[in-house]
Every structure is written in structure tokens, then in C-alpha cells.
Computed example of a mutant assay.
Amino acid sequence: MTDQRDEALEERRKRLGAALKDVRRDAGREAADERKAEANRKGFAEAMKLSSEFVAAVIVGGALGYFLDRFAGTGPWGLIILLLLGFCAGVLNVMRAAGLVARPDPGDRKDR
């Protein structure tokens, strides 16, 4: 009787060990998938931040140029110039946010 019981316990232990091995493998795979998804979300958030900074700078430049032309009567020149300035400001903001251009150091100013 104890022999059958020992064999049944050993069989059950083997089945539980195999099931536990499968669960651990699946948990490792899920953790790897979650790390990959987290990296993708961070990249998407960074892309959205950079693109919104660029678009906002261009829109603000264009709007200021339009209103300058509208109220000062300068023709399309205010729109053209301020739209180009907005584009340049947007590119500079994106490069600063991406870390390609350093921010100016306040200690480097010459007027002190």
C-alpha cells in the first residue's frame, strides 16, 4: 500500500514539476514581452512629444505672421518671415529635446 502511495506521489510530483516549469517559462516570456512593449511606449511618447513641439512652433510662427500682416498691412512678408522663423525654432526645439544640441549655459554670457 505504501508502495503504491509513494509511486502516486512521485507521479504527481513529476506532473506538478512539469506544470511549474511551463508556468515559469510562460512568465519569463510575458516579462520579456512587457519590457519590449514598455520600450515601444516610451519611443512612441518621445516621438509624439518631439512632433508636437515642432508643429506647435510652426503654427505659432504662422499665426503671428498672419496677424502681423492682417493688422500692419505688410502683405505676405510677415507670414513668410515668421513662418520660417517658427520652422527654425521648431527644428531647434526638437534638436534640443533629442539631445543633439546643448542648451546655452547662463555662465557663458558676456554681459556680466
Rank of each mutant, 00 (worst) to 15 (best):
A97W: 01
G90Q: 09
C88M: 07
A27R: 15
G61C: 04
L92Q: 13
A45S: 09
V58L: 12
D22G: 03
M48H: 06
K49N: 11
G73P: 02
R13K: 12
N40G: 03
R109C: 12
L64A: 14
K21P: 00
R12E: 01
R5G: 04
D111R: 14
K14H: 06
Y66R: 05
D105F: 11
L85W: 03
I80L: 04
G73F: 06
R13L: 11
G75Y: 11
V55Q: 04
F67P: 10
D3R: 15
D26Y: 04
I59M: 12
F54R: 13
E7Q: 15
L83E: 02
A18W: 02
D6C: 09
D33G: 13
R5Q: 15
A32E: 15
F54P: 09
E53N: 13
R5M: 10
V23R: 01
A27W: 06
A45P: 08
V94T: 13
A45F: 10
S51Y: 10
R5C: 02
V55G: 02
T2Q: 11
L92A: 14
D69G: 07
D6E: 13
Q4N: 13
R15W: 01
R13C: 04
G61S: 05
I59G: 11
A31K: 13
L85Y: 03
G62P: 01
